[in-house]
Amino acid sequence: MNEEKTYSAAGEVGQVRVRRSRWERIRIELKKAPVSAWFGMIVIAIYAFVAIFAQFLAPFGEAQIFPKADLPWAMLGGETQHFFGTDQIGRDTLSRMIFGAQNTIGIALTTTVLSFLIGGSLGLIAAINQSWLDQLLSRGVDVIMSIPSLIFALMLLSIFGSSIPTLIFIIAALDSTRVFRLTRSVAINVVVMDYVEAARLRGEGLGWVMRREILPNILPPLVAEFGLRFSFVFLIIAALSFLGLGIQPPTADWGSMVRDGSRFIQFVAYDWTLALPSLLPAGAVALLTVAVNFVVDWFLHKTSGLRDEH
C-alpha cells in the first residue's frame, strides 16, 4: 500500500495553500462549463477566425462578378466552382458570406464598443455626480427609451441618410441609453463605499475614481451586458440592412444578402434550395446570436451566483 496516497484530514489542513494562477482558474472554470457554453464559445471562435482572416479564406473577391450565375449546389454536378452558387448578378455567395462575416461583425463590434464608451462613462459620471446632471441624463434616457429603437433608428436614418459611419453613430447613441441605465444602477451601489470616499479625500481626480475604484467592481455585469448588447446591435444592424437602410452594396453584409436572396422566395414552394440565398446569411446571424446568448447565460450564472428560474 502506497503511503502517500492515503488520505488524512490533518494532512490536508496542514498543506501549504498555493494560490492558483489566473490561467489555472480559467482552465478549471472552463472544465466545468456546460455543453451549451462550449458550443457557444466554439461557434464564436469560428466566427472570429473567419472574420479576421476573410481575405485569405474567401475563394473569390468580395465584389468579383462572374458572367454566369449559378444555383446553389450546382458544384455537385461539376458544372461550376461556386459551392453555394452565385447571387443575382453573379457574385460568389460563399465568398460574400465570408466577407460579410468581417463587415457585419466588425461594424456591430465597433458600434457596441462605442455605445459602451458613451453609455458607460455617462453612467459612471451620473452615479458619482448624483445632482441635476444625473436627473437630466436619467430623464432624457427615459424619454429616448420610450421610443422603440428600430423605429427611432429608422427616423434618424431618414434624416442623416444611411452610410456606415452614421449607422454606427446612430445605433451606438440609441444603444448607449441601455448601457447608461445598467452602469448607473450598478455603480450607484459602489459609489457609496468607503474606499471611493477615501480616494476622493486623498485628492484623486474624477477619471481615476471612475477607472480605478468603481470600474473594477462593476465589471462582471458590464461584461455580460456587453455580450447581450452585441447580439442586440448585431440583430438591429442586420434588420436595418435587410430593410435596405443599413450597410449599402457593394459591401457584403448578411442583412442585405438576405434581402437580395428574397427575390426567389415566391418559388420556394417548387424548389426549396431557392430559399438558400436568404436562409444561409439569416442562419449565420441566428447562429451567432444563439451562441453569444449561451455564453452570456453561463457567464451570468457564474458571476452572479444566482439561479434564475426562467
Binding site: 434588420a239 438576405v258 436562409l279 439569416a282 442562419g283 446571424v285 441566428a286 446570436t289 444563439v290
Partner: peptide
C-alpha cells in the same frame, strides 16, 4: 427568442 425575425420568417 434569439433568432432574428427574418430568419424565422424564411424558415
Amino acid at each position: 427568442i434569439s433568432f432574428p425575425e427574418f430568419f424565422l420568417a424564411y424558415l
